[in-house]
C-alpha cells in the first residue's frame, strides 16, 4: 500500500522519535503476513487477529500506528485493538474501517508495565478483505504535547472516513466523511459531520484516546463552518478506556457554528489529584463533538482539530 507524502507529512505533526516495529507478530488465520504487511480475508465472524507483546518503558507515553484499508467500509467501530496494561487492566478500543488507505493511531500510557500484549482484529461485521501494514510503536516525547496530539487534525492524509473518530451517544454509525474543501486556511479536505435528528440521543462523534499530563492545562479546538445554524458541544472527556471508577471528569463548551470558518476552543486544567477522578490515572482523555438535543439538520465542516498542552497564564 502506497504511503503518500502527505501521510508522512501529516504524521510529522507530532514529534516522533524513531519507531519500533513490533516483533514476533503472530497472525492468526485468516491473517497472513509477509515482511511487515498483513492481509486477511475476513469472513464476518472469525475474531482471529494479529497478536504480539511489546516491551515498553514504564511511565512512558506511546502511540501504536498502522496503515489499513479494507474492501468494505464500516461506519461502526469494528476494528479493535485490545490488550492489557498492568496498572489499569484490559482495554479494547475500536475504529471504523475505511475503504481507502488511512493511518490509525492508538495512544496509551505504560504505567508501571514493561511489556504489553496487543491484539488487532476485526469484530463481527460484514466480510471484507483487510490490508494492514507499517505497524509501529513509538514513544511520545515531552515536546510533542505542545504540538498537536490529535492525529490527522487537518485530514491531509485522511481518505474516505475520519478513522480516528467513532460514533457516540447512541449515534449508530459514524455520521462523518472526509470531503474536499476549497476555502479553509489549510489542507484540501475537511471532516463533514452531518447533523440529523436521531432516533435516540444526538449526533455525536468521539475521538480516539489522546494522551494528557495531569496537572497541566490543555486546549481542545477546531475550526468549523456550517450550512445552517448548528449548535454543538465540544467535550473533553476523561472516561477511562479501561474500567471506569469513581467520578466522571469531563468539561464541555457549547458553540454556535456559523456559515463562515471560525475557531472554537475549550481550555481545561487536568486535575493532578486522582482521588476524585481515578479514571484520569490512565493519562488519557478523548474529545467529543456532538449536537444538542432536537438539533436541526445541518452539515458542519470541521478541520484543524487540535489537542495540545498550553501555558497557564500568570
Amino acid at each position: 500500500m502506497k504511503i503518500s507524502t502527505s501521510l508522512i507529512a501529516a504524521m510529522a505533526l507530532v514529534l516522533w522519535v524513531s519507531a519500533e516495529v513490533p516483533p514476533n507478530i503472530s497472525p492468526g488465520s485468516p491473517w497472513e503476513g509477509v515482511s511487515g504487511r498483513f492481509q486477511a480475508d475476513y469472513d464476518g465472524k472469525n475474531d482471529q487477529g494479529l497478536s504480539w507483546t511489546s516491551q515498553v518503558s514504564p511511565e512512558t507515553y506511546y502511540a501504536l500506528t498502522w496503515n489499513m484499508k479494507a474492501s468494505q467500509e464500516e461506519l461502526r467501530p469494528v476494528f479493535t485493538v485490545n490488550g492489557e496494561i498492568g496498572d489499569y487492566g484490559s482495554f479494547s478500543k475500536s475504529y471504523p474501517v475505511s475503504a481507502a488507505p488511512n493511518v490509525y493511531t492508538f495512544y496509551f500510557y505504560s504505567g508501571s508495565a514493561s511489556s504489553i500484549p496487543f491484539k488487532l482484529f476485526c469484530s463481527s461485521s460484514k466480510p471484507k478483505k483487510i490490508d494492514l501494514s507499517a505497524l509501529e510503536l513509538r514513544k511520545i516525547e515531552a515536546d510533542a504535547f505542545k504540538g498537536n496530539l490529535m492525529p490527522e487534525g487537518y485530514f491531509h492524509g485522511a481518505s474516505g472516513i475520519p478513522v480516528m473518530w467513532k460514533p457516540d451517544d447512541g449515534t449508530p454509525q459514524l455520521p462523518a466523511r472526509i470531503e474536499k474543501q476549497a476555502d479553509f486556511l489549510a489542507g484540501d479536505q475537511a471532516l463533514l459531520l452531518k447533523i440529523a435528528p436521531q432516533e435516540k440521543g444526538v449526533t455525536s462523534i468521539s475521538s480516539i484516546q489522546l494522551p494528557m499530563i495531569p496537572g497541566k492545562r490543555f486546549e481542545a479546538s477546531f475550526w468549523g463552518k456550517a450550512d445552517a445554524e448548528a449548535v454543538l458541544a465540544l467535550d473533553v472527556n476523561g472516561w477511562s478506556m479501561y474500567r471506569h471508577f469513581g467520578g466522571h471528569w469531563w468539561k464541555s463548551r457549547s458553540v454556535k457554528v456559523g456559515p463562515a470558518w471560525a475557531p472554537y476552543s475549550l481550555t481545561v486544567d487536568i486535575p493532578e489529584d486522582f482521588k476524585a477522578f481515578p479514571d484520569l490515572q490512565s493519562r488519557l482523555v478523548s474529545l467529543k463533538i456532538r449536537s444538542k438535543e432536537n438539533a436541526q439538520t445541518a452539515k458542519v465542516w470541521i478541520s484543524a482539530i487540535r489537542f495540545r498542552q498550553v501555558e497557564k497564564a500568570d
Binding site: A10, A12, H156, F184, L185, A186, G187, D188
Partner: peptide, 15 residues
C-alpha cells in the same frame, strides 16, 4: 490572526 495558504503547488500543513 490565524494564517494559512492554499494553492496548486502547496497547502498549509497547519494554521
Amino acid at each position: 490572526i490565524a494564517c494559512g495558504l492554499r494553492g496548486e503547488s502547496a497547502t498549509a500543513l497547519e494554521i
